[in-house]
Design a protein around this nucleic acid. Structure first.
Lengths: 333, 333
DNA sequence: GTGAAAGCGCTAACAG
DNA sequence: CTGTTAGCGCTTTCAC
């Protein structure tokens, strides 16, 4: 059986209040001698303080929830790592939840997390319509959203990436080389980032005086499979294009695979740029030119904001928009 | 302020015991009418039961800790996902901890997790010498180790992969094609899996009557960087080899990159096989022949074992050794 | 320097 | 069918 504060107190022949004070280092008024004695007993008996009993009183569990679609998607481990690093340093634990973009799972996790009394939640949603459910009102703790907005949810803080600008820069690179028929293999346009990247694409075209041709915009999902099939489809339709801007790196990699099979050379015949800068981008041949998203930083900042908000609930938190960075590698000349 | 069971009880004009019963669906003996009334009040006031208060009494937090080296390493997200899927279905939460293979961090996480009263821990260690510290005795809850053993730690359960056999099969494939000079770019041989894979390599050679040449075994780390530099080193030393067996896929990918730069064709000039079957293996050109490790399953099984052990502490749990599978793709002829 | 007492929100007998 | 009671292990005044 686990030993409790009561037993340590008895062994040390002091009250539990005294033990509590030394365990929590609130021991300015405890004699060096008792302090010593108590620590020895704690070591000897492997006493582990029950922090959830403390939580009942302090109303703080020092744990936060992290709800992401899928840790298996190469985008999220870095975000999670950023969250965990900050949280750990600040003395918080993180509870990992994979929602699969499934609103039911999201709602169920939110309920579970709140029942477990987490101090706050970091949330990446597919665009859960919280106002459609009873979920919205149920938030009784701070929530920071990462990467995507939640419709109509008045969250306390938000971290996003400047997708418009990132896409603008990527497409500008292509345009600056004289390309005029830029195929855009997009992610699902119902999602905010995909939409913003398309807008950036369009803005760059406009800037360079190249007319926007909607036939060049293909909408799919954020997968290599889609990149592969999307490109093959474009070629089958005999669509003319001289370069490609992809909604993310996975799409770009799928497209490169298809190009490789078709004997079309990258970057000689077609230049291609991705988005995200996942690890794989540095591994494929040729290395992928892409727009780097600060994934780790997003997670880190989110945890920072959240914990700040937990500590100072009334504090006004500024939303954060992180910058992207164009990384030029071998898939462009 | 959050509403408590007491207030719901008052509003419903019943005792808190009654509310507790309906909240936990132990309501066989509660009239349909009161039950209804209580649920309505719960909805209306967004009552969220405080599960940590329950935990104090039931001694169960329904959360487990997952300690891995680094979620950012492509091997672990799938393991984590397996853990989370089983845990979630069983009503458990998982607390994610990145240890960076740092024994200090590992020990500190173990302490924190136990203070938070997690019901059990799933642990992937770099081979923490628990007996070197006071850590060993400190485990007061079930622990399952995944992938690696902990020296001298008498854990309740263990999940490993048959690395010897996997390596044996991979190397046999190469040998069956008549290769006799198989370069082995290994991971750190201080780790059990790397060691076992080297043993499997040696066993296969023996089986085929090919002498073991220690000059063909290069030890490094589980990274693309090492695969790249290891291969270049071998070539510089004018080492003769006709094929390569790599300690993991990352090493294989690094080696392929180096081969590509050197103008050596895979699989025409040199055949290569990896280990793990991470996602990237299917993306690189050529696709990597590899030995698949059931990562997801490892996590899933580990969670299953752990939760079984939590529910039935006296139960004798059998260690699990999972099989590998040879996946033949394009990097072998 | 130290301890007594009240109580966090809830569950689990047991009584009625 | 429902309520009373006695805690779970701890923190936090406040008194000595």
């Amino acid at each position: 059986m686990k030993i409790t504060i009561k037993e340590i107190a008895k062994l040390a022949d002091v009250s539990i209040a005294t033990v509590s004070k030394v365990v929590n280092h609130k021991d300015q008024n405890i004699s060096e001698e008792t302090r010593q004695r108590i620590w020895e007993l704690i070591e000897e008996h492997h006493y582990v303080p029950n922090r959830i009993a403390s939580s009942m009183i302090t109303k703080k569990t020092h744990s936060i929830g992290l709800i992401i679609p899928d840790i298996t998607n190469p985008f999220f481990p870095e975000v999670a790592r950023g969250v965990e690093d900050y949280a750990n340093a600040a003395g918080y634990h993180v509870v990992l939840c994979n929602s699969d973009n499934n609103p039911d799972k999201e709602i169920s996790y939110i309920a579970m997390l709140q029942e477990k009394m987490v101090d706050g939640i970091i949330f990446t949603s597919s665009g859960l319509r919280m106002h459609d459910s009873k979920g919205l009102l149920k938030f009784q703790i701070p929530v920071i959203t990462v990467d995507r907005d939640i419709d109509n949810l008045k969250t306390q803080g938000k971290i996003t990436v400047d997708n418009v600008n990132g896409a603008y820069n990527g497409v500008s690179l292509l345009l600056s080389k004289g390309h005029k028929r830029i195929l855009h293999l997009s992610g699902p346009l119902s999602s905010k980032p995909a939409e913003d990247r398309r807008i950036g694409y369009q803005m760059a075209l406009q800037e360079y005086g190249v007319p926007y041709d909607e036939h060049l915009v293909y909408e799919g999902s954020y997968t290599t499979e889609w990149g592969y099939s999307g490109l093959k489809m474009a070629v089958e339709k005999q669509l003319a294009f001289d370069s490609i801007f992809c909604g993310n790196d996975l799409i770009a990699i799928g497209a490169m695979k298809a190009l490789h099979e078709l004997g079309i050379k990258v970057p000689e015949d077609v230049e291609i740029v991705g988005f995200d800068d996942i690890y794989i981008a540095t591994i494929v041949t040729p290395n992928l030119t892409t727009i780097r998203q600060p994934n780790y930083l997003m997670g880190y900042k989110a945890a920072e904001m959240l914990i700040e908000l937990i500590k100072h609930p009334t504090k006004q938190i500024e939303d954060v928009v992180l910058k992207t960075e164009l990384i030029i590698r071998e898939s462009t000349k």
